[in-house]
Amino acid sequence: MYFEVLGVTDPNAHTVVLSSGLGGSAHFWKPQLEALTKQYRVVVYDQLGTGRSPATLPMDYSIEHMSDELLELLDGLDVKQCHVVGHALGGLVAMKMALRRPDILKSMVLINAWSSPNPHTLRCFNIRKAILDTCSKEIFLQMQALILYPPDWIADNIATLVEEEAHLLKVFPDKDNLLKRIAALSTFDIENQIKQIQTDTLIIANKDDLLVPWQQSKQLDDALPNSKMSLLDYGGHASTVTATQTVNTILMEHLNCY
């Protein structure tokens, strides 16, 4: 699995692990790296079956598989404790880690995540699967942008977005792998386990998220014993990109408490 270790080299520095959403790419976190690498050892990685981590994923691929892959990576890097920042799918990975290996988590940050399937989100996934089956990769990426970003951000950043989509087209994941990852997201459900998670948790949600209703984050905040929530008015699903300064400020304030 492809990974990079960036930032502070002091062995006593805290480690921050960044885990992406459905796309699985380390590149997603570029807007956060300048702020984080000044103070922390930062681990980014391309999730298995995406980007620079080619693989054929098993038919029963799950969030549990993804958490095991990240834990194996961290064990290989001799990381004893870390903060995990997860966006959407990455947040689900963090919660599964908190259930399986709570000792390795100093804290977790869940950005537009959820604890069980939601009818609205499932419909969005069904549309994406239909586009994969019937349309081009270019159309899939255009639909993805509509899900990730607010309309005004797309209008103001269209040149950057077109350039990014050209890059994503070159590294577009294997269709079968992508469908297996969507299936893993669609079936993730830890409602009967969520109260067992004792990890200190920061939840970030967006009122204008088109993919994951912010109430899913509120549900997480109500269920998790040691959580706090920051609800943003603007940013869409990918507020790490569209509201970078706001998200980075919230993230750094959380991490600097340790």
Results as ranks from 00 to 15, higher is better:
5 V>Y: 06
8 V>Q: 06
15 T>D: 04
16 V>I: 07
18 L>R: 02
21 G>E: 04
23 G>Q: 06
24 G>Q: 05
30 K>Y: 04
31 P>H: 08
33 L>R: 07
39 Q>L: 08
39 Q>R: 15
40 Y>Q: 10
41 R>T: 04
41 R>F: 09
44 V>A: 08
45 Y>N: 06
45 Y>M: 11
47 Q>L: 06
56 T>L: 14
58 P>F: 09
58 P>W: 08
59 M>Y: 10
60 D>Q: 14
61 Y>V: 01
62 S>K: 04
62 S>W: 06
63 I>H: 03
64 E>V: 13
65 H>V: 01
67 S>Y: 05
70 L>F: 07
72 E>R: 13
74 L>N: 03
74 L>I: 00
74 L>G: 01
75 D>N: 15
76 G>V: 01
76 G>W: 04
79 V>N: 03
85 V>C: 11
85 V>I: 15
92 L>W: 00
94 A>T: 01
94 A>H: 03
96 K>P: 00
97 M>V: 05
99 L>W: 06
101 R>I: 02
101 R>M: 11
102 P>F: 13
104 I>D: 00
104 I>C: 08
105 L>M: 11
105 L>P: 02
109 V>I: 14
110 L>M: 10
111 I>W: 05
115 S>R: 09
117 P>T: 10
120 H>W: 15
122 L>Y: 05
125 F>A: 09
125 F>N: 10
126 N>I: 07
129 K>H: 06
133 D>N: 15
138 E>Q: 14
141 L>D: 02
156 D>H: 07
156 D>S: 12
157 N>P: 03
159 A>W: 08
160 T>F: 14
161 L>M: 12
162 V>E: 15
163 E>T: 07
164 E>D: 12
165 E>N: 15
165 E>W: 09
167 H>A: 13
170 K>A: 12
171 V>T: 15
173 P>D: 10
173 P>S: 11
176 D>A: 15
177 N>C: 12
178 L>S: 03
180 K>Q: 13
181 R>A: 00
183 A>V: 05
190 I>L: 09
191 E>F: 07
196 Q>F: 08
196 Q>R: 15
197 I>A: 03
199 T>I: 13
199 T>R: 14
204 I>T: 03
208 D>Q: 08
210 L>T: 07
212 V>A: 05
215 Q>R: 15
215 Q>N: 09
217 S>G: 14
219 Q>K: 15
220 L>F: 04
223 A>M: 08
224 L>M: 10
230 S>P: 01
231 L>T: 01
234 Y>R: 11
237 H>I: 03
238 A>I: 04
243 A>V: 01
245 Q>Y: 08
246 T>Y: 10
248 N>I: 01
249 T>P: 00
249 T>Y: 14
249 T>S: 14
257 C>V: 12
258 Y>A: 14
